[in-house]
Amino acid sequence: MNLIKHLVLLLAAPLVFAQTPNLSGFWELRFDSRNVPEASLTLDATKIAREQRAHDAHAIRWCYNLGVPFLMAQTPIDIIQNASGKEVAITFPYRGPSRHIYTDGRKHVNPDVFDPSSSGDSIGHWEGETLVVDTIGFSDEGVISIPGGGRRTVTSHLMERYRLVKNGQQLSVTSTWDDAQTFSKPHTYEFRYYRAPKGTEAREYDCNASDEERAKFLTGTPGL
């Protein structure tokens, strides 16, 4: 009896101590998925709201890389948590860069070397059952607006906390943006993604900047 008890404990130990929650799969936002308070913006950030809208509209018109955080709201997102434990990838139904969150213990790439990008340089680690993701190295490419107000800039710092809730049927992602250029205090909001139905498949929403009808719709007077 003792032999069996020891055996069970020894086999179960790696599962109990080494296994992190599995966030893999397709996730989607629904109408009640967002808790987004208004951001406290610096005076400078408030003044350039119109310019920011024009910047985003231009990026969409010309099919630029859209970037974070815009893509995190374009669902279904697909999270692929490598079995190796070294990386978590997030893909989107839009053309362009996927997110790579390195969980192999590396530090941020030296900013003197890293080419700023629309999704930045992300590293992650587990705190209990929460995946904590730290991102810097953003560019101003793509859609820069942040839910609740403000914008992504080259000095933005994003901290995200991913954790399963409701028995793994929902994924909570809390995002905190810190950037003295934009926010008078860190800006935090939470999305709760619903696990997409089994058999969900990736979609491809393409973008064609040469489509004149599309360009007319996006830049012309609504209704004409």
Binding site: S24, G25, D78, I80, Q81, N82, A83, E87, T91
Partner: peptide, 8 residues
Amino acid sequence: AQTDNEIV
């Protein structure tokens, strides 16, 4: 990126 259910 590889899991049991999907490879991307």
